[in-house]
Design a protein around this nucleic acid. Structure first.
Lengths: 339, 339
DNA sequence: CCGGCCTGTCGAAGCGCTTCGACGGAGTAT
DNA sequence: ATACTCCGTCGAAGCGCTTCGACAGGCCGG
């Protein structure tokens, strides 16, 4: 294992000079710098992470807390994680992967041990136990998701309320009057995960404004659960012609069941999904959808953190505007004459 | 930030004593130990990770290299990552998340800087550039996946060859004689990712032994690509009655197209998938499938690594035996009289 | 009763790096 | 020429921990 001292000796300078070449914190003459860089290359030197962390009390590591469960939004999680990792690397940081399993203790451990300089917290619940800890530490953090009280916190999320509104608007503009919402599994609502409730608020609010009827049904993923949910929806509102789906695992079962019941998409019923692009484009019908901008969320979170670590940046809530892409699953309501 | 020295002072002992209480590397009297532990608790002490790494030259971190692309096996990757993270924590390790983006340099950086004590490498290609580096370092590593030459390496993977054989056997036992294989995207084969080729070998080998006809077609995910692939398959082999699918993104499009063409599953055609349980059970038809044991692979990889770090364990290739679960997508071939 | 041997504790020497103050020498202003 | 500044470099002091050797005291067997 090559050390700074060896590089210094090889280049014929002192250790501190090598350190300053590496950090750029003091000016070094071009000739010296080049000689040092040459030595670094020929010796294949890599600074020891532990020593660096100890001396500078900065680890150049960002902790990423991902949810333990894999019952929802798996591709989104993955995409965020990858975006976080690549963006972090571009800024010279590595990423430590923590699962929600440890709960609040993970926050204590990371801040207490100086393992990471900053944290990104995913899957935030409305009154998450980790929030007081995050507020009480001087280590920067960014939440992906929105808790009930965002004071003193930095958050990034899709504007799910606007997303809900957008879906309703789109269906309304096509003449649909009776809309059913296939939501996440009941557990998601019981846990008070913010995004599901905010989407619902957006949906309900705009439906009310536009005078549409809206029926919301949580739904476990899978074919059987979907079958039950769907039959109940049509029992209650036979005239339903528009669907909003916010549950990846329900998308295909819904399409399959509609097809099986002889309801053509988009001729008889329209479907709008809130899901990652990949799901929307690879479904058996190409879905009109609002994409969850996973990559952008991950990237943004890291950039916020880097700014904070650099003394810039501030606490604020960033809600990314939703974008609806029209594909093959939505069309005019049956018998609609147009606007 | 509380330090060892402060704990020592609070407990009225020397710093080394506290260290030995923490590590258990020397015997400490019960009274002293309890006093120290009490101090640790009341002060909320967490050992500084950097200092610990520097002094002991062990970081208690395991690096996990995940593929950058998200074009295949996303839920599997995620499941493995989570299993790795939780298992590692159970053994006192944290997990550093690296993407394939850096390529071989990531290996150099991690080993050179002492950032991690060991590595888990996913998405291994047959002649992966990282392999020589892994062989040449004294840091333990485990591959998830199987390269062409496994000498000097430790690998964990599903036995994809046996998986292929198992799928063919199942279809053969139901009287199917003409089998089509919907594979991963062509790129996956061009990249020479091992698992796809090994599955194919298993399929072909057993088909030959059992006298079945087998047609293999790579396929991009999505509806349109699948439609093209499927029509070509039926053009070439109109009697095809059994499908093996190894491509998550092709599963639903395949089912949708078969349905649309009036071919009932499993009455007219049978489908066997190689995919995660979740995909199999949440598809629009509950799929007979061989599960990719993602969790077990992740867990096993970590345990191998921990054993190696403890001086136990050795280089070996572990191929997990496949298990086929019969669900609703496979049944007797049309017109088959039984065995 | 003494030498040898555990057991439990301590002191001190680093681990490899960052960073602060110091300093020689060149350049600039007086 | 003097006084001053600025630039480039160096030496040394830690950062908080682990770990090695030392040592005091209690126990044993001879």
């Amino acid at each position: 294992m090559v050390t700074l001292a060896e590089v210094a000796q090889h280049a014929g300078v002192s250790a501190s000079t090598v350190s300053y070449v590496l950090s750029g914190k003091r000016s070094i003459s071009t000739t010296t710098r080049q000689r040092v860089e040459e030595s670094i290359r020929t010796l294949g030197y890599h600074p020891n992470a532990g020593a660096r962390a100890l001396a500078s009390s900065r680890s150049n590591i960002i902790a990423l807390m991902i949810p333990l469960r894999t019952d929802m939004y798996v591709p989104v999680m993955m995409e965020i994680a990858i975006a976080v990792a690549t963006t972090a690397r571009a800024h010279g940081y590595d990423v430590l992967l923590l699962t929600g399993e440890e709960g609040p203790d993970a926050v204590r451990r990371v801040t207490g041990s100086g393992l990471a300089d900053a944290m990104i917290v995913m899957d935030v619940e409305l009154r998450d136990e980790r929030l007081p800890l995050l507020r009480g530490t001087d280590r920067p953090s960014v939440l992906i998701g929105l808790p009930a009280d965002t004071s003193g916190l930095t958050c990034v999320d899709l504007d799910f309320r606007a997303t809900g509104a957008l879906c309703v608007e789109h269906l309304a503009s096509l003449g649909h009057r009776d809309i059913a919402v296939i939501g996440e599994a009941p557990g998601v609502y019981e846990r008070h995960t913010g995004f599901a409730e905010r989407t619902l608020q957006g949906l309900r609010g705009r439906a009310l404004e536009l005078g549409l009827r809206l029926l919301h049904r949580p739904c476990e993923g899978g074919y059987d659960a979907m079958a039950l949910t769907l039959s109940r929806i049509f029992d209650e509102r036979p005239g339903t012609s528009g669907f909003v789906v916010q549950n990846e695992a329900a998308v295909e079962p819904l399409l399959a069941l509609l097809r099986q019941q002889g309801r053509a998409v988009p001729e008889d019923v329209s479907v709008v999904a809130v899901c990652p692009e990949q799901v929307a484009t690879q479904a058996s019908v190409r879905l009109t959808s609002v994409a969850v901008p996973a990559q952008e969320m991950g990237r943004h979170a890291v950039e916020q953190l880097v700014a904070k670590l650099g003394g810039r940046g501030s606490d604020e809530v960033v809600l990314l505007p939703p974008e609806l892409t029209v594909r093959a699953s939505s069309g005019p309501a049956p018998g609609w004459a147009g606007p």
